[in-house]
Write a protein that binds this DNA or RNA. Structure first.
Length: 488
RNA sequence: GCUCCGGUGGUGUAGUCCGGCCAAUCAUUUCGGCCUUUCGAGCCGAAGACUCGGGUUCGAAUCCCGGCCGGAGCACCA
């Protein structure tokens, strides 16, 4: 086209690395945050919030703040302070800074006072039901007309009141069409011991207040949050207006539904206390630590969340998708071994070739990893479910004919097995083997024998038991290896 | 009930802003085939979707209106 002197106009660039949409607003010096409530370890649902924040920060070289929102002592589970950073590290999310809202009460008090002085907030001594009745009918409560002086006076006395006697409200629009937005609560009294603060404070900020103050003070350029916060965003904007602050970009994403596991943190906690679950990493739970224990790779989760992106539509994650993606990561790293569930001893009648020494590669595509050694001398263990009438090949050893309880020698060569379309099954030597347990994803346990080469594994290694599936070595005891099952 | 938000194959996405290059992308899934050795891995191939009805337009997944379906919020929780 150039020779005609025509400028070829490129279509709008369609370079998109992943499903993550480009961040609106500035890309310079962005500051994002992940702000969990420390009520337990991180759940797969938390990754929906943590991962996009981390990814944007990575792409734009910004700053990521981990802000622990522990302003409701009833909902703080103390070990979560430790667990959350651990879980994030596993996920590959590395905050630049950790902030605890419980360290910042004096700051919140300061801004609360400023709001009162501006006439933008008032002390409300109505009881909840009365206020709701008025609010639902677009009526201001009498306290709304208190003078600044009166409010200040009440604010000073706040600490001496009974819990429930008064709250601090932020003025919005009493005629707002959504009743939820009208004059929301900023501060309330709480008589509950806080794990980090003890009983030092009684005046507690509400989430909407502390979040808005912190987002501003920490210089957040963008706030990513679930669409369940849509109304909260609107509430918080009133606070920004009162204070004359610049509003960050808000991005709301849809709900993440997880197939099968609908377990909330509180349900999980209850189950653990009742002994239904073995702990926060019980394979039935959707916590990141449970997923990790099963050998699901952090990158599987990370990539999946990026793919889902930050759009408003809800999405449902299926285990099939997770397993399928994870298999792609595990396949090259997992070495192959034989495992026989519910092992049955078979003696091959008519076998007379003496002891066979067999070598099999640890991974067919990676010969450099070396071989495992198995020996066969006419006896072996095979999985109970593999005992069916017909001709079978004990993988890499011999072909046998099974008829009821009788197992007889048929032939030796693989070619013959192929010709006969004999099914190839795994087996374990009688002399050399190891007890293996596999904890399945429903917490049931498969018990059996594995080949002795498994003894060289370390905790954390992920293997594939041929025709069984991928599993992660979780524990080595005196007489057995305990694996956690990942997937087929 | 009120307020708000969504709806592309079984699932997750791309495309929607700025209508034509979309008989719609990629992944997973399912099915089939292949493989001197996993009938459950791997490799190859195939299948499968624009919620519905109107409207605007030469032309609609894309814009407008309505229906249907789904979700969220309506706390002195976060």
């Amino acid at each position: 086209m150039e020779k005609y002197g025509v400028e070829v106009q490129e279509k709008k660039p369609k370079v998109k690395e992943t499903g993550l949409q480009e961040l609106p607003g500035t890309h310079e010096n962005i500051v994002l945050r992940f702000a969990p409530n420390p009520s337990g370890p991180l759940h797969i649902g938390h990754s929906r919030a943590a991962v996009p924040n981390a990814e944007y920060v990575k792409r734009h070289n910004g700053k990521l703040i981990l802000r622990i929102e522990d302003t409701d002592p009833k909902r703080v589970f103390e070990p979560a302070y430790e667990m959350i950073p651990e879980d994030l590290e596993w996920l590959g999310v590395n905050p630049d800074e950790i902030i605890y809202q419980s360290d910042r009460f004096e700051i919140y008090y300061d801004y609360a006072r400023q709001l009162i002085e501006k006439g933008a907030a008032y002390m409300c001594t109505c009881d909840g039901a009365t206020f709701k009745e008025l609010k639902d009918n677009c009526k201001a409560c009498p306290c709304r007309d208190n003078s600044v002086e009166e409010n200040l006076e009440l604010w000073e006395k706040f600490d001496t009141m009974e819990a429930g006697e008064a709250v601090l409200r932020v003025k919005t629009d009493i005629n707002h069409k959504n009743p939820a937005i009208r004059d929301w609560v900023a501060m309330r009294l709480v008589d509950e011991e806080h794990p980090r603060l003890g009983t030092k404070y009684r005046i507690y900020p509400m989430m909407n207040f502390s979040v808005a103050v912190d987002d501003h003070l920490m210089g957040l350029t963008h706030v990513l949050r679930g669409k369940d916060h849509l109304a909260n965003t609107e509430k918080q904007k009133y606070l920004y207006d009162h204070m004359g602050w610049e509003v960050p970009e808000y991005i709301h994403y849809g709900r993440l539904k997880m197939e099968d596991i609908a377990l909330s943190t509180s349900k999980a906690k209850e189950g653990i206390e009742n002994g239904i679950y073995s702990g926060w990493d019980d394979p039935r739970l959707g916590t990141l630590r449970a997923i990790a224990r099963r050998g699901i790779q952090p990158k599987t989760i990370y990539d999946l969340i990026i793919e889902i992106g930050v759009k408003m539509a809800d999405s449902a994650i299926s285990w099939k998708k997770i397993y399928g993606q994870n298999r792609n990561f595990l396949e090259p790293i997992a070495n192959r071994y034989f495992f026989c569930e519910d092992p049955q001893l078979i003696e091959v009648a008519g076998y007379s070739d003496g002891k066979m020494d067999i070598e099999r590669p640890l991974h067919a595509d990676h010969e450099d990893r070396g071989n495992r050694h198995l020996s066969f001398d006419g006896k072996a263990y095979i999985a109970k479910s593999d005992i069916n009438n017909g001709i079978f090949r004990l993988m890499d050893a011999v072909n046998v004919m099974v008829d009821g309880d009788d197992v007889t020698y048929h032939s030796a060569s693989f070619e013959e097995a192929r010709e006969l379309k004999a099914r190839i099954i795994q087996w374990v030597p009688v002399e050399e083997n190891v007890n293996v347990k596999i904890v399945m994803d429903d917490a049931s346990i498969k018990t059996g024998l594995g080949e002795s080469a498994l003894k060289e594994l370390k905790v954390g290694d992920i293997v594939q038991f041929e025709r069984v599936g991928f599993a992660r070595l979780d524990e080595i005891t005196d007489d057995e290896l305990i694996f956690y099952f990942a997937h087929k």
